[in-house]
Simulated assay, not measured.
Amino acid sequence: MSDIDVDAPLMHPILKNDYATQWMGIEVTKVADGHATITMKLRQEMLNGFGIAHGGMIFAFADTAFALSCNPHTGSEDSITVAAGVDINFLKPGIPGRLLTAVANRRQQSGRSGIYDIQVFQSVPGAEDEILAEFRGRSRTIPKRA
């Protein structure tokens, strides 16, 4: 399957009616079979009471990359792939105004089950991006509901 590099957000079919992803301002920068890269700016309304990224925002961001990497960018008429379970480890605080990047990769696929690793990075002015969180997702492919 070929890679798709896109210039505009919402180029993956599962994002067409994904209003949460639209609100978050997530942009798809790359999708391929078993891979996705997305970006998002960390805005004020995404912060917790400590003035850093709300963990739920980081989770939702990583979860979007997970979903994009699990489902074909060409769409499927018969099935969807959903989360069977996930774990996330927060390594650093998310700083307001920073650009976040999530990189998702399939590690293993066996039948209808898969394992995916997603790394979330944040930009650092004048330095290399730093890792913000590690997310591991376990997927399950199921029939699409009518």
Rank of each mutant, 00 (worst) to 15 (best):
P96K: 05
N71S: 11
G51S: 13
A65F: 01
H54E: 02
L99R: 12
A53G: 15
A83E: 11
I95E: 12
A62H: 06
V28T: 09
G56P: 12
P72I: 01
L100R: 01
I52N: 04
F90L: 05
P96F: 04
G55L: 06
K41C: 11
V86H: 02
V28A: 03
D78W: 14
E45F: 14
A32Y: 04
R98T: 12
G49P: 10
D33S: 09
L91K: 07
D78S: 14
T39D: 12
T29E: 04
A67W: 01
A67N: 01
L68A: 03
N71P: 13
P93N: 05
H54R: 04
T81Q: 01
G49I: 13
R43Y: 15
S69C: 09
G49S: 10
G85H: 10
A60W: 07
L68E: 06
D78K: 15
D78Q: 14
H73T: 02
A53E: 14
F59H: 07
C70W: 00
C70H: 01
G85L: 13
F61H: 06
G94Q: 00
D33Q: 07
G85T: 13
D78N: 13
I88T: 09
T101N: 02
N48P: 03
M46V: 06
T29P: 01
A67S: 05
F59Q: 00
T29I: 01
G56S: 08
I80L: 12
F50S: 05
F66H: 01
I88M: 07
L100N: 09
A32V: 07
A65P: 05
A67C: 00
A102W: 14
G85V: 13
T39V: 14
F50W: 14
V28Y: 02
K30T: 08
L42Y: 15
D63L: 04
R43Q: 15
G51W: 10
S69A: 12
G56T: 09
I38W: 03
K41A: 12
A53V: 14
T74A: 09
L99K: 12
C70Y: 02
R98C: 10
G25N: 04
L91W: 00
L99G: 00
N89R: 15
T37H: 03
N71L: 10
A67Y: 04
L99E: 13
I58F: 08
K30L: 13
V31Q: 08
G94L: 03
K92T: 06
I52A: 06
P93H: 02
D63E: 03
K30E: 10
N71T: 10
A102T: 14
T101F: 08
G25D: 09
T64M: 04
N89L: 11
G97L: 10
H73K: 03
D63N: 07
D63M: 01
V31T: 11
T37P: 00
P72V: 06
F90P: 01
E77G: 09
N71W: 10
N48I: 04
M40P: 02
L47R: 11
T37Y: 03
G97W: 12
I26V: 14
C70T: 00
R43I: 15
S79P: 07
K41T: 15
T64H: 02
I95P: 11
N71G: 07
G56I: 10
H73D: 01
V86A: 10
P72W: 02
D33E: 11
A62K: 05
A65D: 03
I58N: 11
A36H: 03
D33A: 05
A83L: 11
K30Y: 07
F61S: 07
L68M: 04
G97T: 09
G55M: 09
L99Q: 12
G34M: 00
A62W: 00
M57V: 15
